[in-house]
């Protein structure tokens, strides 16, 4: 499985964020987007996720499901956690499993994987920022999609949670998945390639 982008361009509010950008990520591989603020890391992730208009270029997932578009085979973990405070932890996750096309049987294991099982019945509004982040990450574990798009995935996470996230990412890569992450710090992955955005490429 290969995620291939070639000659991509992104324009936001009359300003060209990047153009002529190409990359290729194979299954089992991680691509880290690095670069200064405003270089277009988040924009590239949102572009792959289909949330930002692609001004030029092509984006394909070789070896993926030909019936589905790239965004439909991708998980996007953005800056916001996409949780409703009045719904419980379980209700929040169950909804995203149903919506993203997963199986509810995976719910309990996913909560266990992010260590939220003991507060599964609490409203999400009671959770701390780190707990909310972990609940958001549980979505990636519960629904199997080959492409993970992570925007600063470690923000708000403590050391133990960062280690847990690293383990989840390694398991995803070992299972043949691929991931693209925008980050300022190390993610705990052993052999990740870097794509430098902004300035000298």
């Amino acid at each position: 499985m290969d995620l291939i982008g070639s000659d991509l361009a992104c324009v936001r509010g009359q300003r060209e964020v990047f153009s002529g950008l190409g990359f290729r990520v194979a299954g089992g591989e991680a691509l880290l987007l690095v670069g200064p603020n405003g270089a277009g890391k988040s924009s590239l992730l949102r572009l792959i996720a289909g949330l930002v208009h692609r001004a030029a270029g092509t984006l394909t997932l070789d070896g993926g499901d030909p019936e589905l578009s790239v965004p439909e085979q991708a998980h996007y973990l953005g800056h916001q956690d996409a949780l409703k405070p009045s719904l419980t932890v379980t209700e929040n996750l169950a909804f995203w499993i149903d919506w993203l096309g997963g199986d509810r049987a995976a719910l309990a294991a996913a909560l266990e994987a992010v260590a939220l099982a003991e507060i599964a019945d609490l409203p999400a509004g009671y959770l701390s920022a780190g707990q909310r982040r972990r609940l958001s990450i549980a979505r990636l574990v519960a629904v199997s999609r080959p492409v993970w798009l992570l925007d600063e995935p470690t923000s708000a996470l403590d050391v133990a949670s960062q280690a847990r996230l690293a383990a989840l990412m390694k398991a995803h890569l070992a299972g043949g998945g691929l991931l693209v992450a925008a980050t300022h710090g190390p993610l705990g992955l052993d052999d990740a390639r870097e794509l430098r955005l902004g300035g000298t490429a």
């Binding site: 939220l116 507060i119 959770l127 780190g130």
Partner: peptide, 12 residues
């Protein structure tokens, strides 16, 4: 109590 429960679970 539930708020405390959420707080207590934070480190877990």
């Amino acid at each position: 109590l539930r708020l405390l429960q959420a707080q207590g679970a934070r480190g877990a």
